[in-house]
Design a protein around this nucleic acid. Structure first.
Lengths: 258, 258
DNA sequence: TTATGACCGTTACTAGTCATAACAAACACG
DNA sequence: CGTGTTTGTTATGACTAGTAACGGTCATAA
């Protein structure tokens, strides 16, 4: 009754039957309805009965598609990670590769926009776990998270490869981060996939992420509502350009679209 | 039945009677038990029945003290804001006034520590509203939030007053933030209480807040668990020193305790 | 000391939730 | 056409928030 959902079946390329297509469509509709409810109510919560009612069904029917609330939540979380990762990657790849400063600005803008447009899904993946939900250990959610975060790292790696990445600005008396990073890197403790970047760049990357995440989450959850919109925009863009500069990314050569 | 809770009574200084003390103690115990449950379960959720059971009572008894779940949540939110504000202020004031760089580092460290130690309460005040909760408009929560955030501003104001605040580093072609800030400041649109700071400093302050909040929330919600603890510490401290420097605060003259 | 009334806790109850069980209709396919 | 799977239904159980009505306790005043 549960295995039917995680059907990463081994059948190679059998065209989906009529029933399978209908089933997939229903699953999609359930997820969309759940997200609609979250948006409407402004929380990460939803009731099976509400989903069913909106879909013209009764609540128990949903259990044919998701074993329980957690399984639906897991699906929504994976989708959200993938969606955010895709949005970020698309924005990034609309800017020429040889302009990593502008590419980072695009990434930050899309990250922020996504958070602001979908605060509930943002909270779902990057906030506190929702009440009663227990993520499957080392399951699909963590993988999806890694995929999404790889987008940011790819940007820095490209820039480093292209040789346009200056040494990031660091507070004066440092070196401990580099040392610790080296220590922990050799036993392959860190689950950092892909090619390595210099330690200062790793640190700069985290700094960039934290900065844009901080602004994005504060804004998404309404804690910057007291700032007029255009002022928020200006402050965010300025902050982003600042962290990019400090991280050693070159000045963007073209103005980002928005 | 409800007015008895919001007893910001006008009676000046009447010593609390035995009953009033017992009532206050019970209210405190309810809040503590609720927080304990949140900590235990790792969410911002709790059940009245669980609170009552842990207190050796039945659930309906709790309604003598809080009209409903929202009212208890509101109390917890106000307490959390006050607690965070106090923690930050205390850490800040343990550092000499003439060392604003170190004062900021202390603020950031305590902000981070509080978030990490109490992720549920952190999410309660700075995350997405919990399911089903509707904050009273312009109520005590927003006031408590303003009080807490004033602590950070005070630090920058002191530094500006003392004349040790350099002009913050900004991305090159700016000025729009300053212009917009001026535009919106004259009609007193912005609810920024206290004395004004220069526009660049305002922006730098937001940048500092966003950066430390981003790191703190990512860490508090477990999204940096893949980083070894000491490396997290080092990265955070380095980032903080960096944003402080960029914000125009002088280098700290003394090493912060932790 | 006793009577009064506010306060605090109880049990009983309603309405709504997640989830399961048992059953009925629709569908795919031999 | 008959058979078994799939997908829906209704009925049910256990649990929660919150209300209502009742009883005990305590402080105060006669």
């Amino acid at each position: 009754m549960v295995g039917q959902i995680t059907e990463t079946g081994d059948q190679p390329e059998r065209p989906p039957s009529r029933r399978e297509r209908a089933r997939a469509a229903t699953i999609e509709e359930i997820k969309q309805t759940a997200m609609g409810l979250m948006r409407e109510q402004g929380t990460t919560d939803f009731r099976f009965s509400d989903i069913a009612r909106l879909m013209g069904m009764t609540a128990p029917a949903l259990y044919r598609y998701f074993a329980d609330r957690d399984e639906l939540l897991t699906a929504l979380i994976v989708d959200a990670y993938d969606d955010l990762g895709q949005a970020v990657a698309e924005a990034r790849d609309q800017v020429p590769v040889d302009d990593p400063g502008a590419r980072f600005a695009a990434v930050a803008q899309s990250y922020r926009r996504w958070a602001r447009d979908e605060p509930q899904r943002f909270a779902l993946i990057l906030g506190l776990p929702v009440p009663g939900y227990h993520a499957p250990e080392e399951g699909p959610t963590t993988e999806a998270a890694r995929r999404a975060m790889a987008q940011l790292k790819a940007l820095f790696y490209e820039a480093a490869q292209a040789g346009v990445l200056r040494r990031p600005m660091l507070p004066d008396d440092d070196g401990t981060v580099a040392r610790l990073l080296a220590e922990h890197h050799e036993p392959k403790e860190l689950p950092i996939d892909g090619p390595p970047v210099p330690p200062e760049t790793f640190q700069a990357m985290l700094h960039c992420w934290a900065s844009m995440h901080g602004f994005a989450s504060l804004e998404a959850y309404g804690h910057l509502d007291w700032l007029p919109g255009e002022l928020r925009d200006a402050v965010f863009e300025s902050s982003i350009r600042l962290v990019a500069k400090v991280a050693g990314l070159p000045e963007p050569s073209s103005r980002p679209a928005g």
